[in-house]
Design a protein around this nucleic acid. Structure first.
Length: 453
RNA sequence: GGCCCGUUGGUCAAGUGGUCAAGACGGCGGCCUCUCACGCCGCAAUCACGAGUUCGACUCUCGUACGGGUCACCA
C-alpha cells in the first residue's frame, strides 16, 4: 500500500529510537541540554539509537551557525548521535526544511483520512466538536481533556509557506523515523491530545512520551536567556566544566534514588531510569553547580587543570610566571575557572595596603614585631639555595625555631610582605617560590621600608 | 478566564499507609591551620492548608490556597 512509503520499512522492528529535536536558535539553554541528556540516556539504557533532528520549520527564526552550536554542545558533552544531518542514518533527511514534500504528502493524506481539512492556503487539523481525548505520559500518567477546551483548537498543520507547524512535523517525523520514546518539555503537555488525534487518524502507533517539567530561575520564572540567565555557553565561558554542568543538570528534576550524586556520562547510562524524573519544576541553583564544578576541578590531574586554567591565568598576569606553578597554587582553591584572575593579581604587583594588616592575634604579630621578623628573615632569604617551596618553608620553620616562636610568627608577616593581602591562595613559601628570589627579596625590602616609616 | 499539571527544609531531593521524615548544596558553630581553601565534626531548617478514608496518613480521596503550562501560519 502506497501509504507506507518513505523510510519506515528501513527501521528494524523492536529497536528503541529516541530523538533530540532542537530548534537552531543560536545557543543551548540548560533545560535543552537536560532534555538532550535524558533523550540520549534513554536510548543508551535501552540499547537504542539516539537521533539528532533539526527543527527549522520557522523560517523567520533562522540563525546563522546555530546548527554548529548544537553539534558542538552535544559533542562537548559526549552526547554523540547515531543518526543526524551530518552523519546520515536510516531515515534521512534530518533537517525539517529538507522534508517539505514529505509533510505536504502526509498533510494531503490526512485530509483524505478526515483528520484535517483545507482552509484557504493552509491545512488545519480537524478536532471533534465534543467528547474527550485521553493520552498517556510516562511521567504524568493518563490525562484526559475535553475536546472543547481552548487548547484543542483546529490549528494549522501546514502553513501557507508550505512548511509544517511543530505539532504536525513532530508527529510525521517521529513516526517516519521510528521514534519510540519522546522526551519533551511540559509546555507540550496541552498539545498531546492533538497528537493523539493525529496518530489515530493516520492509524499509527504512538511513541512513549516522557514529559519533563521546566528548569526554573525561581519559583515563578523559567530559566531563560532573555531574562539574563546563563546559557550553557555562558557557563562555559565563566569557567564551568562541561562534565560538571552535565552532572548537575542530570540531577535537576531527576534522582537516581540513592545518596550518590556524582556520575560520569557512562555511569548515568547505566543508572538512568525515568522513574526518578520529577513532575514538578526544579530551580537551577548556581551554588550547587559551583560545588559540582569545584569537585570536578579538584579531581583533575595538575596538568589537565593547568591546561584549562592557562587562558585565565594569562589574562591576569601574562607570561610573568610559570603557568604550572600558578595553576598548582590555585588548583585546590578554585571553584570556577573564571575567578582565577582576581585571586592572583597580586603576583604582578603588591597592592597598596595598610600596615595594620601585620596585626594578627593568632600569629602574635603586629607591625613592630613583623618589622623585626622581616629584618631577621631577609638575610636568611638572601642566602637561601635552592629557591624552592620546600626550602623556603624549611627556612621559615628554622627561623621560627631559633626565635623560640611558632611558625606563624615568621610566616604570617612574610606572607603579607610578599602579597600585601590578608587573604591569599597558599602561604608565604608557595608565593615566594613563584615570585622568585629577586622579586621576593625586593618585596621584603619594600615591606621593611614601609614599616620603618 | 477555560482546560491541564504541580506543591517534602532557602535549593536539589529520598520516601509509594506504621521512619525519631534519608542524603547533598547553601547557612551557622567548632576542629585543623602562617591567611584562604581543602578535609573532619556538629547544629538549625521541611511534609502548603482544611476536610475525609483508615487502628494509623507525607503517602489514598475531595476541596481550598499558591505556583506553573496552554489557548499562534513559535517551537
Amino acid at each position: 500500500m502506497s501509504f507506507f512509503t518513505d523510510n519506515e520499512a528501513a527501521i528494524p522492528r523492536g529497536t528503541v529510537r529516541t530523538r533530540f529535536a532542537p530548534s537552531p536558535t543560536g545557543y543551548m539553554h540548560v533545560g535543552g541540554l537536560r532534555t538532550a541528556l535524558y533523550t540520549y540516556l534513554i536510548a543508551k539504557k535501552l540499547g537504542g539509537t539516539f537521533i539528532l533532528r533539526i527543527e527549522d520549520t520557522d523560517q523567520n527564526r533562522l540563525v546563522e551557525g546555530a546548527t554548529e552550536i548544537i553539534y558542538r554542545t552535544l559533542r562537548d558533552c559526549g552526547l554523540t548521535w547515531d543518526e543526524g544531518p551530518d552523519v546520515g542514518g536510516l531515515t534521512p533527511p534530518y533537517v525539517q526544511s529538507e522534508r517539505r514534500d514529505i509533510y505536504r504528502r502526509y498533510a494531503e493524506k490526512l485530509v483524505e483520512l478526515g483528520g484535517a481539512y483545507v482552509d484557504g492556503d493552509v491545512i488545519r487539523q480537524k478536532i471533534p466538536r465534543d467528547g474527550e481525548t485521553t493520552f498517556s505520559d510516562v511521567i504524568f500518567g493518563d490525562i484526559t481533556v475535553p475536546n472543547t477546551s481552548a487548547s484543542m483548537d483546529e490549528g494549522v498543520l501546514l502553513k501557507s509557506d508550505g512548511l509544517p507547524t511543530y505539532n504536525f512535523a513532530n508527529v510525521v517525523d517521529d513516526h517516519l523515523m521510528g521514534i519510540t520514546h519522546v522526551v519533551h518539555g511540559s509546555e507540550y503537555l496541552s498539545s498531546m491530545p492533538k497528537y493523539v488525534l493525529l496518530y489515530r487518524a493516520f492509524g499509527w502507533e504512538m511513541p512513549e512520551y516522557v514529559t519533563v517539567s521546566p528548569v526554573m530561575r525561581d519559583a515563578q520564572h523559567k530559566l531563560s536567556k532573555r531574562n539574563g540567565d546563563p546559557t550553557y555557553e555562558d557557563l562555559l565561558t565563566q569557567g564551568y566544566l562541561h562534565s560538571a554542568i552535565l552532572n548537575y543538570v542530570a540531577l535537576l528534576g531527576w534522582s537516581p534514588g540513592g545518596e550518590r550524586e556524582f556520575f560520569t556520562l557512562a555511569e548515568l547510562e547505566a543508572v538512568f531510569d525515568t522513574h526518578g524524573i520529577s513532575k514538578s519544576p526544579a530551580i537551577f541553583d548556581i551554588a550547587k553547580l559551583r560545588y559540582f564544578n569545584a569537585e570536578y576541578i579538584r579531581a583533575l590531574e595538575p596538568a589537565q587543570f593547568a591546561a584549562l586554567a592557562e587562558p585565565f591565568i594569562k589574562s591576569a598576569i601574562g607570561d610573568s610566571f610559570a603557568v604550572a606553578d600558578v595553576a598548582a597554587l590555585v588548583h585546590s582553591r578554585c571553584e570556577v575557572l573564571g575567578e582565577i584572575p582576581e585571586t592572583i593579581g597580586f603576583l604582578n604587583a603588591v597592592p597598596p595596603y595598610d600596615t595594620e594588616l601585620y596585626t594578627h592575634k593568632k600569629s602574635k604579630t603586629d607591625a613592630a614585631i613583623s618589622l623585626d621578623v622581616l629584618h631577621r628573615a631577609l638575610p636568611v632569604l638572601e642566602s637561601l639555595e635552592p629557591w624552592t617551596r620546600d626550602a623556603l618553608y624549611d627556612a621559615q620553620v628554622a627561623l621560627a625555631e631559633s626565635l623560640g616562636a611558632k611558625n606563624a610568627l615568621v610566616m604570617y608577616p612574610l606572607r603579607i610582605a610578599v602579597s600585601g593581602l590578608a587573604v591569599t591562595p597558599g602561604g608565604a613559601a608557595e608565593i615566594a617560590a613563584i615570585l622568585g628570589k629577586t622579586e621576593t627579596l625586593e618585596r621584603v625590602r619594600g615591606a621593611i621600608a614601609k614599616l620603618e616609616v
